[in-house]
Amino acid sequence: MHDDVFAPRRGVQMRRMLRQHPGAALGVLFILVLLLASLFAPLPYDPMGIDGGATLRSPGGEHWFGTDGAGGDIFSRVIYAARVDLSLALAGTVLSLVVGVLLGLAASSKGKGSERLVRGLDAFQAFPLLILALALVSLSGNKLYMVVVAIALINVPRFMRLLRSEVLSLRESRFIEAATATGASPRRIIFRHLLPNVWGIVLVQTSLTVANAIVVIASLSFLGIGVSPPTPSWGSMIRDGAGNMSSGEWWIAGFAGLAVVLCVLAFNQLADAIGDRTARTYR
């Protein structure tokens, strides 16, 4: 396409991408609104508060999303939970990204050693990572930073594998050969030639990692690991409402679960959109 020749500024590219992928645009909007609301919006009730006189109210005018078994306002809690859930997910993603990219680059040589490392990663990913992650957080005494480490444990190998395969195939390409032939230093090759070209798929993987992290955090707090009460998190709200599902009070777990689903959808859509964009620019 002729307009790619002029390589428009990133901002323009971003806007065009969002126009072509309305799902991704809606998703980004949703996440932004949710995040801002959780940080700044005045909530109708205290998200940590309980009200013995108003338990298990169904959604309505007074409590938009109803109340839970202790009388907590679901709407306030769902919005407020975005704080801890999204920030943990983003922290875990950043850690996975940094460690994964660095280790991935380090493992991108063609030697026997790096081959073995990848086989080792294969084997590692073959194990029940969720169980390992749960064990890690639980056995370390439920520290929040361990949740971040657990997310990285699951996602670092994915970044490594992705980066390695991409860098290895790029290494074969003409322009890297040309750069090497002109005597560019390895550092220059990595930072000037390799990284800019893998950036697109790294972004895709980053977006998928946020989605995955949100699910991992929800799973952990669903089991009572990680975020501890009374701080509301989507996982623990689903846990609170789990028993009520078979007696008909769907809204306690329902809205929290919906929040998780929408966030995951948003980041998956964003990943799709970036992936499309990347495919068109580089391939």
Partner: peptide, 11 residues
Amino acid sequence: QAIPDFFLGLL
């Protein structure tokens, strides 16, 4: 793909 399996179970 976006629904956590345990939440789908509850639904």
